[in-house]
Design a protein around this nucleic acid. Structure first.
Lengths: 123, 123
DNA sequence: TTACTGTACTATATCATATAATACAGTAAA
DNA sequence: TTTACTGTATTATATGATATAGTACAGTAA
């Protein structure tokens, strides 16, 4: 497979699969119109339960990134640029709760951006 | 109490209590040397199980923010400025996983800081 | 027909979170 | 010393998210 799963990751398995697919599109390994590996195939190559792959695929489908074709497989609907946007929006959604809280408490935007800069420097 | 609990919050109850204490210190409602409301008192006024308060207090203690005094209560150890630092570090810790991932995928620091700016504009 | 696809359902297990009740130990004031 | 507060410890139960397991059904195409 074009990506791997880490059982020790803080992210759940289905989240890691969702990430893996999105990043594969970003890298160009998967393109709009491609058929994803079948549920059973991906599950077996990642050594994960088929139901976990189903959960990831259905989540991606509800995001509009792929679509199920009965008897055929899952079709990739989005390209690199659209995935880039989605990933940024995803990031915004994930951190907005924390960020808004910081704003309410009285932190200013520069202090928070400094945190981002520091992370970028280190890793 | 100086803060409230929302059962519909995405944050767990004990997280909300930890937040509430930290923010109370930031606002000056709680000062270094103050004694926190007792476990039973806080639990009853927030309508929460005492064990949930215990979990929050013990977490704050392990962060070095308060300390338990058998038979007396929990003593506040840190002041505003120290809490400010801790909260920023906490934020960095929470988002670093996501941010590092974005960096690895090829996003640049300006794109990510733009996300922060957008959040600040909206709310 | 065969061998693949996705879909649906039930059952089980683990973990974090939260609740509930009880008992024990330290502190301080009446 | 007694009383009424503190924190601490332990056990039990419930829920929801996550993950696993197995089985059965439906669509597609060679």
């Amino acid at each position: 497979m074009w990506f791997k799963i880490d059982i020790r990751s803080p992210l759940s398995l289905n989240e890691q699969i969702k990430m893996g697919i999105k990043e594969s599109i970003l890298k160009g390994v998967l393109k709009e119109g491609d058929i994803l590996p079948s549920i059973r195939e991906l599950a077996s190559s990642l050594k994960v339960n088929p139901n976990t792959v189903v959960r990831a695929y259905k989540a991606l489908e509800s995001e509009g990134i792929i679509i199920a074709k009965q008897g055929i497989g899952y079709l990739v609907l989005k390209g690199k640029s659209e995935i880039r946007e989605l990933i940024l929006k995803d990031f915004a959604r994930k951190i907005s709760g924390e960020a808004i809280r910081l704003k309410k408490i009285g932190f200013n935007v520069d202090e928070v951006m400094e945190v981002i800069k520091e992370i970028w420097k280190k890793k």
